[in-house]
Design a binder for these strands. Sequence first.
DNA 1: ATCCCGAGGG
DNA 2: CCCTCTGGAT
Length: 214
Amino acid sequence: METPERMTAITRLMREHHGDIDERPSEPRDPYRTLIGCVLSHRTRDENSSRAARNLFAEIEGPLDLLTMKPDTLKELIRCSGFFNQKARSIVAISRVLVDNFGGMVPDDRETLMGLPGVGPKTADIVLSHAFQKPAIAVDVHVSRVARRLGLAPNDAGPERVKEALERLVPPDLYRFVDNAFVRHGKEFCRNSNPRCSGCFLIELCTIPGSQSR
DNA sequence: ATCCCGAGGG
DNA sequence: CCCTCTGGAT
């Protein structure tokens, strides 16, 4: 496949799917909210993590408020997202570090972000790209799967290799739109199980066997 | 029973 | 790279 075709595929994806995921809105949002929203979203359905984020941020403004909250109150607010014990611990730990070491501000470089408890590559890249408008591509399971199926990355590529592949194909000023586009496509059409190939507008590029007749 | 926007540890 | 952590919603 020629590079122009791949570029077209990505461009079409980004045109089709806009930012409508809670902590990845089209417009940049408060870094702290973005960060905590990512923690709440770990391995949970977006409706549930979004509800938890709205519940929580109806009560607080920033890390200082959060640290004054009773642990049970916090857990109750985020319960609907599941894994609430682990998430509550992580949210408190992060807020503690932010207040103690960073003046209550969220750091804007990748290394420091990934040093925070419960913050890995995906969360760091979401915060960098969406809250700070920095050129970073956030890769989650949807991005990886869709990129591999479209032949944009080798089918045995892990998150890091997928990221490198996409960085070579997308202009840096568009990096922050990649995750929403791929995630949306991955949820609506290119699902992990039972993909809706018949509705996919990129089916001619698909590499998975049987996709043309599904 | 199965799925869901990961991170950390071995 | 694989395993575990750990809960709600359908």
